[in-house]
Amino acid sequence: MALNRDFVGRTYQTSSSYEVSRVKIREFAAAIGDNNPIYRDREAAHAAGHPDVIAPPTFPIVFTLAGAGEALADPELGLNFAMVVHGEQRFEYARPVRAGDELLCTSTITDIRSIGRNEVLTVKSDVTTLDGEHVCTTYNTIVERGGAA
C-alpha cells in the first residue's frame, strides 16, 4: 500500500529525555563485539580527552528510532512493518554521545517517495541535551518492500 504523503513534514518530539548510561553503552558495545576501552573505562575515556565513557558512532539508533516510532506506527501512514528493511543511515556529530547525557530527540519525516516497487521514507532526527546543546543529527531511511506495487 502506498504511504500517506501527508506525513511529509510532520515533526515528533520525544516526551521525555533519554538518559545515556555507562551500563547501556557497555551493553551496546558488547552486542557489536567491540572491546574498545573508551566505551567501558572512564580512565581510558579521560586519557582520550572525554569527560566520561563515550558511545559508539551508531549508538543513537537506540533512542532515535523510538522518536519516529509514534509516526511510523500511525495506521494513517499505512506502513506494513513486516515488509520494512533499512535503506540508509547517517550520523552527523557535533560531539560524541557520552555517559550522563540527557538527550531530547526531535524527528521529522522529510521525504516519502516510490522507487520501483518500493516505498521509501526518510526521518531526520535532531538530538540535543536538555540545555539545548546540539549533539548529533541522524538520518534514517527505511524501505517498505513492494509498498508501491
Partner: peptide, 20 residues
C-alpha cells in the same frame, strides 16, 4: 568499529553514513 579502531579514538568519527 573498523574506522574507530583505525582512528584510535571513537570520538574522532564526526560523520558516518551508509546505504544498505
Amino acid at each position: 568499529r573498523f574506522v574507530t579502531d583505525w582512528a584510535g579514538d571513537p570520538g574522532a568519527v564526526v560523520d558516518y553514513g551508509v546505504k544498505f
